[in-house]
Nucleic acid binder design. Structure first.
Length: 551
RNA sequence: GUGCCCGUAGCUCAAUGGAUAGAGCAUCAGCCUUCUAAGCUGAGGGUUACAGGUUCGAGUCCUGUCGGGCAUACCA
C-alpha cells in the first residue's frame, strides 16, 4: 500500500516545485480518525519550502491527483499531518491481487541479479548445538528467506574450523575417555570437554577397535571420528528445524596456498602491510588498529606462528567479495560482538565497500521452566541442547519462539508456554487460523459446492463491514512488512504482523456468517478467507513454520 | 575501568523522531441448540529506571547517574 502512495506524493511535490532526497514516510495511524494512512512530509520539508508545516500541507493536498475510487478524503490534521482516507471498496479490489499473485504476493524483483550471502550457525564441530546457537540459526534462515522474496540469489553459508586448538582439545578429550574405557585410570582435565557425547564417541571407538588404539599417541583417529559424529549430529539437529546451508566453508582453506599464490591469510597480511597497518613486535604480527583510534593493536599472527582467529576472519570476508556478493549478512551471537569492527576496518583499508556487509547480532537465550530461569552457558558440559528443546516443544514452536522477540532483546524461552495448545501459545494461535480456514473450505466444498480453484476474488468488493475491511486492509500490509523485516534484519515484525492477521480473521469469523450467508456474500467471504490463507502461508514460509490443514 | 546490548502495565514483549505509549499472559465480567470455544467481546492496570539537553514534536536522539547481560586473550 505504501507503494501506491509514493508516486502521487512525489507528483504533488514536483508540482509544488519541491525537490528532495529525503525518504517519504507513509504511516498507518493507530487511531482510525486520522485516516487509513498518513504522511509527515510537511514537517520534513517545511524548512526548505520556507513555510510552516500546516501551510505546506494545505498546499500539497490540493495537488494530489488520486484516481477515482481510491482516496476519498485527504485532510490536514494537527500541526501538519496529511491524512488519507481510503474507499473501502479499494481495499477489497486490491485484495484480489493476493489471489492473483498467490505465493508471489509480497515478492518483488528489487534484488534481481544481485548475489547475497547469509552466514549463520557457523559452529565448530566441538559439540552438539546449544539452544543459543539455534536462535542465530533460525534468524539467519529467516533473513535468507526474506532476501529470496526480493529476488536475490542467496547463498546460505556455514563457516567452520576443524583444525584449530579447540579441535585438538576435543580429540584429546575423546582419547582420555577412550583410555578410561580401556580400563586406565585417567584424571580427566577440567580444561577439556566435559559433555556426555565425548564418552559416547569414545565408546563407539572402543566397540570398533577394542583397546588397540590405547598405545598410539596419534590423535588423528580421535579427531576424525569426533568431527564426523559431531558434524552429522549438528546437521541432523539443523535439519529438524528446516535450517539448511548451500555451502560449508572450511576456515582451514584460508591457510593453504594454491596454484603458486600465497595463502589467503598471507595475502591479507601483505595487503595490509602495503597500506602500512602491519606491525611486528613481541614476536607476533599485529593489525595496527591503534592507527584507527583503538586502544590496542590486534594480533593477527601469534608468536607461535599460527594465525589468531582475526586473520582468517578477514581473509574469509575477502573471499566473499571475491566471490562477487553484493550483500553479505553475518548472523552471530552477542559473544562475538568484538569481532566484527576489526574485520570491517580491515576490509575498508583493503579497498572494499564495507557497507555491503550487514551484521545481525542476537542476544542470548534463557529458558524458563516452571517460572525458574535457567541460564545457558557454552563450552561447559551443562549447556542445554537444542535437540532436547526440539524434542520437548517441537520444531515449529522452537522456530517461532526464537524470532518472536527482537534480536537485541534477551530471549526468555518459556518452555511450558511453547507446549501449550491454546491461544496463549502464539504458534497455535497462528496455525489455528490457517487450519480453521482449511476446515471451512472442506465444508464449503461439501455443502455448497464451492471450488476454491475457481475463486478469483471478483466478489470481494461486495464486502463492506468493518471486520471485513479491517481484515483486507491488514492483508495488504504484507509487502510492507517484508520490507520492514529486511531493512531491520528483524523477522520478529512478521510474527507480530501475522498475529494481527490471525486475530482479525478470528474476529471476522466470529461476527460474519460465511456458509449461512446469501450466495453472493458467501462467495465473497470464502474468497476473503482464501486470501487470508494465502497471506498466512506466505508468511509461514518466510518464518519456516508449517501450515497445518487441520488441528 | 572501557566497549556493545537491554531497562516500557504484576509477567513476557511492541511502538522507521509523530497525534491519546500498544499487544498477549495473568486478574475480573460476558458470548457455544449456529461454519473448529484451540475462538470472540468488554473492564481495570503506566511519572516509558532517574536527571538534564536537542526541536514544531522524545519511549526513541545527545550527556550524565543507577540497575542487568555480554565482551574486553598471542581462545574461536
Amino acid at each position: 500500500m505504501r507503494a501506491f502512495f509514493l508516486p502521487f506524493i512525489q507528483d504533488a511535490l514536483h508540482k509544488a516545485g519541491i525537490e528532495t532526497d529525503k525518504e517519504i514516510q507513509i504511516d498507518k495511524p493507530n487511531d482510525k480518525k486520522f485516516g487509513d494512512f498518513s504522511t509527515n512530509i510537511a514537517f520534513l520539508l517545511a524548512k526548505e519550502a520556507r513555510k510552516n508545516p500546516r501551510e505546506l500541507a494545505t498546499q500539497l493536498i490540493a495537488l494530489f491527483a488520486f484516481p477515482e475510487g481510491t482516496v476519498t478524503k485527504t485532510e490536514v490534521a494537527g500541526p501538519g499531518f496529511i491524512n488519507f482516507h481510503l474507499d473501502p471498496a479499494f481495499f477489497m479490489r486490491s485484495a484480489q491481487e493476493v489471489l492473483t499473485q498467490g505465493e508471489k504476493f509480497g515478492c518483488t524483483d528489487s534484488g534481481k541479479g544481485q548475489k547475497a550471502i547469509v552466514e549463520y550457525v557457523s559452529a565448530n564441530p566441538t559439540g552438539p548445538l546449544t539452544i543459543g546457537r539455534g536462535r542465530g540459526g533460525v534468524l539467519g534462515d529467516c533473513i535468507a528467506n526474506l532476501l529470496e522474496t526480493q529476488g536475490y540469489e542467496v547463498t546460505r553459508e556455514y563457516y567452520f574450523n576443524d583444525a584449530g586448538r579447540q579441535m585438538q582439545i576435543l580429540a584429546e578429550s575423546v582419547r582420555f575417555r577412550y583410555l578410561e574405557k580401556c580400563g586406565q585410570a585417567i584424571e580427566f582435565p577440567t580444561t577439556h570437554y566435559q559433555g556426555d557425547y565425548i564418552g559416547e564417541i569414545a565408546e563407539t571407538l572402543f566397540i570398533e577397535h577394542g583397546d588397540e588404539l590405547a598405545s598410539t599417541e596419534e590423535l588423528a583417529i580421535f579427531k576424525e571420528s569426533a568431527e564426523a559424529v559431531i558434524f552429522s549430529s549438528i546437521r541432523r539437529t539443523l535439519e529438524r528445524l528446516s535450517i539448511t546451508h548451500d555451502s560449508f566453508f572450511n576456515e582451514h582453506t584460508l591457510y593453504q596456498s594454491r596454484e603458486g599464490e600465497p595463502s589467503p591469510n598471507r595475502q591479507v597480511i601483505d595487503a595490509l602491510d602495503a597500506k602500512g597497518f602491519i606491525g611486528n613486535y613481541d614476536g607476533a604480527t599485529w593489525f595496527m588498529t591503534t592507527k584507527l583510534g583503538q586502544e590496542k593493536d590486534k594480533v593477527l599472527i601469534k608468536s607461535s606462528g599460527d594465525p589468531s582467529y582475526r586473520l582468517p576472519d578477514i581473509a574469509y570476508h575477502v573471499t566473499k567479495f571475491e566471490r562477487g556478493f553484493d550483500l553479505m549478512v553475518n548472523v552471530f551471537g552477542a559473544d562475538h560482538i568484538d569481532e566484527y569492527p576489526d574485520v570491517l576496518e580491515a576490509l575498508k583499508i583493503l579497498g572494499y565497500d564495507a557497507s555491503k556487509v550487514k551484521i545481525a547480532i542476537n542476544q542470548f537465550v534463557t529458558t524458563t521452566v516452571g517460572g525458574q530461569t535457567v541460564k545457558m552457558s557454552t563450552r561447559k558440559g551443562n549447556a542445554d541442547l537444542l535437540d532436547d528443546l526440539i524434542d520437548d516443544v517441537g520444531a515449529d514452536a522452537t522456530r517461532l519462539f526464537f524470532i518472536m522477540r527482537g534480536k537485541d532483546s534477551h530471549l526468555n524461552f518459556d518452555v511450558e508456554l511453547a507446549k501449550k495448545q491454546s491461544k496463549d501459545n502464539p504458534v497455535f494461535y497462528l496455525q489455528y487460523a490457517h487450519a480453521r480456514i482449511c476446515s471451512l473450505m472442506r465444508l464449503a466444498e461439501k455443502e455448497v459446492g464451492f471450488d476454491e480453484a475457481l475463486a478469483s476474488g471478483e466478489s470481494l468488493p461486495l464486502l463492506d463491514s468493518e471486520p471485513e475491511i479491517d481484515l483486507a486492509s491488514s492483508l495488504l500490509d504484507f509487502p510492507d512488512v517484508i520490507q520492514s523485516c529486511l531493512r531491520l534484519l528483524e523477522p520478529q515484525k512478521m510474527v507480530e504482523y501475522l498475529h494481527t492477521v490471525a486475530e482479525r480473521y478470528h474476529k471476522f469469523y466470529q461476527e460474519c456468517p460465511i456458509l449461512k450467508a446469501d450466495e453472493n456474500i458467501r462467495t465473497a467471504r470464502l474468497e476473503l478467507s482464501l486470501t487470508v490463507r494465502q497471506v498466512l502461508r506466505n508468511g509461514f514460509r518466510i518464518l519456516g513454520i508449517s501450515a497445518p490443514e487441520s488441528m
